[in-house]
Design a protein around this nucleic acid. Structure first.
Lengths: 224, 224, 224, 224
DNA sequence: AATGAATGAGCCTTCATTCAT
DNA sequence: GATGAATGAAGGCTCATTCAT
């Protein structure tokens, strides 16, 4: 039996085209016809290769995340001996790059945003697989940074502050109707610079929270 | 004159129903049939009252924002003599409440998120009218807090850090597939508490940025 | 009881507006909403005054024809002693004016054309009342002009030739897609001139038919 | 390659069904559902094969005209050496057959009439492509027949007289409410006979116009 | 293995008409 | 007597999917 290369090629063309179209138009507005046209394949090819539009969508996600997980690991390549501030910096660096770096994650950042606004009931496990470890990592680092005086709510709020600073950068693309977050084209240099800023900003914020809570506890103690 | 009272009522029923359905399903998936059913009116009523699904969508936005602008003014009711930290706190408080407070803004927070992910080319000016003044306000406050040594990029990055902490809270609803941001039901108390946290966190972050930049400038000076 | 003038006025406004809209858009494309707006009345007024769109349409026809029948009688005001050529000229004059003279027949010429192409099953008797006497008149005149040698088919064909020259002038309005029949604005002078031309043209045509048939009969006779 | 033969067939079924329905009901009243039902295809097939109802309508026109242009060329197959009366006869013959001959032009005559009364803004160029050369031909012949004394208005009026005699035969179908133009079924023999009649009638008319104008010119000359 | 033809469910919109005042 | 609100039937179109090669 002859193995035809165009079978695989056609599948990959579809994946690439789908990523672009899904990112640009969103799941709903994206049509299989458009995706097929962009991929240079015929209109039945989506169902042929992926069974349905849904499954194609999932496949796009999977591919994008696998790529991102490899290129930007959550620990940033640091070993366990690194200091908490260093590890926080690495985590932020990882998050930002996964979201913003087109060359790497493809259009997943854009799709992620849509998924946040319009969960497609189709993704589920993929997301959990990716998000859960990140959260655990973040909470570990934060625990160390906030110290023993911090309570669950401190932890959660700080987690929010940090993650949201990163996550919301995916808003950057909303071109027409919103003031764009970034005026310039996004380069790797800018991403790195922003990661550094968020790290600095957040470490200071965490310290402030730690100090305040410590004071409150001492005050409470003294009041008794 | 034959004026029927039910006219206004029908219109408002549609607006309320539309807000719910748009929030739940998103613009694309929401059908006028469903909205009309929920509003207890005929399927032609959307067109009768609003000309089209598009216009209905815009009307929902407008109503939501007008409400929000009234109930939570951007300056938080502070006069000009308030200190920059106070004014920053008021701004954050305003942003959070507009996004999170269901009782007030209706479902606008949810719809806003969708709009960020999937701009409908239908909103345009409304957004600008709301966002532009907020940004200006934020930048004024930040200028004072960052001091004269700060450059445009410092300003922008700090703006990002603060606004994103607030904006991304709209992710909270993503019920099914994502880890929810808030575990508990969101009460006004929690919103206020979160606003206080973000203010504290951000003021510390801004200070850190200010200090770092000042040092860098002095160092540069000394190097020469 | 006070007689309100606006009742009648509103009715007439509707008739006038309807005539214009029907003429411009045709029965199908004309909407009652548009007619009511043009008439300055409310959207229920058509059904109120005329029961239905159909009945309004009939009313427009009736009014237009009554007017035309009065202003341009089929005999052109000639008495019975007039010569056949004179009476033919009067008939043609009458037909043309009824079709072309906007000031008189209102927009009936235009509507007539539509009705030819798309009979609305609604007119019936009105048409017969108008067309039947014209045909009878025409045939009488033609009988005299063609002489005893003419047969039924001669009669019918000549009738066609004359009536069609007049009737088809209603094509003149097809502005966009067809070469317009008249380049200039249509004035009463031009209508009269055209009537004169058609009369001259047709009288010659009739003579030719008469002569030919006479020859054929004589020939047949001689052949025997 | 998977080429299914039914593709072409389905398209042609649609064209045929559409021609019938458009002719019978007119563009507005004709529904795609009805056309599809008549063609034995699915309701989406119109959109699949022709993109829209509009385009289907255009396609019907095109097909009808292409057929007509081939079967009945405007010059009637005469070469340039034919006498003007012969060429006029050929032109009239052509026009009549194009309009009246169902077997050839399909339902185009009927649709043409509708189009005259209710231009659909959809036809445009097609019409011009067909009408313009006919007019030019007609004017050339008329110029020769009318002689040098004729002015532009003579030319135009004679053109009207001839073209209208032919064009208005499309009125024949107005079945229900109008007195039918032809009582008998229309056969090719009758069409030919009518063509002969119109030619005879018109040649005589043209001569009369020529003579009259010549006299007027001479008179004018003499008066000076 | 792969494709072009064909489908059918569903959506937004239009519009003449009716209802309630 | 007259009006503005409201209706419901119907139409054109889109699009993911299936069918028949």
């Amino acid at each position: 039996m002859a193995i035809r290369k165009d079978g695989i090629k056609s599948r990959e063309n579809l994946l690439r085209a789908a990523a672009e179209v899904f990112a640009e138009k969103g799941y709903q507005k994206a049509t299989v016809a458009q995706i097929c046209q962009k991929a240079g394949s015929n209109i039945a090819s989506v169902n042929y290769h992926f069974t349905s539009k849904d499954e194609l969508y999932i496949a796009v996600w999977k591919k994008a995340f696998e790529h991102a997980l490899q290129v930007y690991p959550a620990d940033g390549g640091l070993d366990q001996t690194a200091t908490p501030p260093q590890r926080l910096g690495a985590l932020i660096h990882c998050l930002l790059h996964r979201i913003l770096d087109d060359g790497t994650l493809g259009f997943a950042g854009q799709i992620l945003l849509r998924e946040l606004g319009e969960p497609t009931e189709v993704i589920g496990n993929i997301m959990l697989d990716v998000v859960a470890p990140l959260r655990k990592l973040a909470r570990n680092i934060l625990s160390e940074l906030l110290g023993p005086a911090a309570n669950e709510r401190n932890l959660r709020f700080c987690e929010l502050s940090i993650v949201h600073q990163c996550l919301a950068t995916s808003f950057r693309r909303s071109r027409k109707n919103f003031p764009r977050v970034f005026e310039d084209e996004i380069t790797i240099e800018i991403i790195d610079e922003l990661a550094e800023h968020i790290t600095l900003f957040s470490l200071a914020g965490i310290s402030a929270v730690r100090k305040k809570w410590k004071n409150m506890k001492q005050k409470k103690k003294a009041d008794r």
